[in-house]
């Protein structure tokens, strides 16, 4: 276990994986955008179905990213795994971005579909709550100065939030059936036609690859940042020793 916890080894593995992953991301995006542009309009929603090709992957990543944060938090709380801490920290801003995109594209999709930018539909509302959970995590990371305390506090909050996500989802579903009994337009009928499903899957794969590229890079950056901090501390320490007349080493 300790072997894989090693940040140096992680840097090497990430360096080896990233070029491939980046290439895959580019190819998937090119293919996905091409398929998106030639996808036929949906008979019910017309061309606005094209928004789905970016909305659904964003929403999917918003959830996957929170799961990764929660899993990393367990790792950093229980095993004190330094990489888990780095992973949980760097995934937060990326998750915020994808959740924000899911909300914005959802509301831009809602305007032509429902006539307003915002509907208190169960799905939109739960994504909004997820966004608040993300904001709380981000605020907690920023409010606590000591990095190790910040990491473990954020880990506790992420796990508490993760336990609550299904409960919140369930209660929002309950609430929305109470207030608008089945009046909302069904997203895409009983089964999604393959002409829409295939571009959707390719775009979802492209977004997922992009997420991993960004996350790995951000983790590398964070490791480097911690090294720079440690070296600066060391530099100051040595300078102080020299001034005090003691040998530097």
């Amino acid at each position: 276990m300790q072997k894989y916890a090693n940040p140096t080894r992680f840097m090497k593995i990430a360096d080896a994986v990233l070029p491939w992953l980046t290439t895959a991301t580019v190819i998937l995006f090119v293919a996905g955008l091409y398929l998106t542009s030639v996808a036929p309009p949906d008979y019910e929603q017309g061309h606005t179905v094209k928004i789905m090709f970016i909305h659904v992957p964003s929403a999917w990543l918003a959830m996957m990213c929170y799961t990764i944060i929660a899993a990393s938090s367990v790792g950093s709380l229980i095993w004190r795994h330094p990489l888990a801490d780095v992973s949980a920290k760097t995934a937060v801003p990326i998750g915020v971005a994808f959740t924000f995109l899911a909300l914005v594209t959802g509301s831009l999709w809602g305007k032509p579909m429902w006539g307003t930018y915002w509907v208190w539909d169960a799905r939109l509302t739960s994504v909004l709550v997820l966004f608040f959970l993300y904001l709380g995590l981000m605020a907690l990371w920023q409010a606590i100065e000591d990095p190790s305390r910040a990491g473990r506090s954020a880990a506790i909050l992420a796990i508490v939030g993760f336990v609550n996500v299904p409960i919140i989802k369930f209660s929002v579903d309950w609430w929305s059936t109470l207030h608008q009994p089945a009046s909302v337009v069904k997203m895409s009928g009983p089964a999604i036609h393959s002409s829409i499903l295939i571009p959707l899957l390719v775009m979802a794969a492209a977004f997922t690859c992009l997420f991993f590229v960004l996350h790995l890079r951000a983790m590398q950056n964070e490791i480097l940042r911690r090294r720079v901090m440690a070296m600066r501390l060391l530099q100051v320490e040595r300078a102080a020793n020299v001034e005090a007349g003691a040998p530097a080493e």
Binding site: P41, G46, T48, K50, I51, L108, P112
Partner: peptide
């Protein structure tokens, strides 16, 4: 892209 092209481009 139909009447709602603005929303598609915006998103």
């Amino acid at each position: 892209l139909g009447p709602h092209y603005g929303f598609i481009f915006a998103s």
